[in-house]
Design a protein around this nucleic acid. Structure first.
Lengths: 145, 145
DNA sequence: GTAATACCTAAACCTGACTTTAGGTCAAGT
DNA sequence: ACTTGACCTAAAGTCAGGTTTAGGTATTAC
């Protein structure tokens, strides 16, 4: 059993945020001893799931719904699995998007490196949009598609 | 030259958002004809960069700073390159984080698939935390590290 | 016994990124 | 001339996800 302060240190999450999560219903079964929250291993695992679902782009209210399902028992297994499958797809999309972002960033790094060498963008402007070095052209095309 | 309505369709961004970006200084050199905005190829490329920097996690005020540097000319090439290098690192971090998120999601999908088959979590609880099938154990460990 | 810590609540406040509202301009078509 | 549609502004409103504030309780250290 952990206090809110221990959990805060463990996860590097402000105490105020943990209380906010609790208020929003993300720990529906948390115990209390004379008013004080007692985080068990269950809440620790819940918090890992909260961080995962949040990182996947899910909103607090939907995480709360998931936590409710967990309390309801085996009848909600398939709803829970569905949720995770959907989050998986969302994260796959997000990663594709990030890869495009990455290509643009790499292109711009190359671009400015060359601009610094040349002292201006004249030669670069002549190469755009389709006379770039092969590997750079790939990045440019990916970022501009 | 494009109107705000054409750009809105082109990028699938609300007109109100484009006006907001302009008000925030993200198009410092945009022309006007009798009060009406005229987006040139320069602004189109700026918008691609805005979307990229936003996707990399940069705030509007910092994107504005970048756009100011662009107006200042060659003396800011290295500042601009630095910015893109930093964004690249931030996105690399973000991708690592997303990979961990993905591992947790895959683990949970496997978990609930098994829970559905079994009708309960008893066998699963016996396998946790280190008697999982080899590939699943990898996902679990990655997500819980 | 009293001081320092670590906990508690309710409610107000904050921030970033937009969006909506209310009222106005301007050019083209009928 | 007048209506329609696309543009304009300033200012207020919205929303998620917290954080801060103000006032209070409970346990341990001296």
């Amino acid at each position: 059993m952990y206090t809110i302060g221990q959990i805060s240190e463990m996860f590097n999450i402000p105490i105020s945020t943990l209380r906010y999560y609790d208020k929003e219903g993300l720990f529906p079964e948390m115990e209390r001893r004379s008013g004080i929250r007692r985080f068990s291993e269950k809440e620790v695992e819940a918090l890992r799931v909260i961080e995962c679902l949040k990182a996947s782009g899910l909103e607090i209210r939907d995480i709360k719904q998931f936590m409710k399902w967990c309390v309801e028992g085996p009848s909600t297994y398939s709803k829970r699995k569905d949720l995770f499958e959907k989050r998986k797809k969302a994260v796959e999309e997000e990663m594709k998007q990030l890869q495009k972002t990455m290509d643009m960033l790499k292109f711009k790094c190359w671009y400015y490196e060359k601009a610094i060498k040349d002292g201006n963008e004249d030669r670069l402007n002549q190469m755009l949009p389709d006379h770039l070095p092969k590997e750079i052209q790939k990045l440019y095309d990916s970022a501009h598609s």
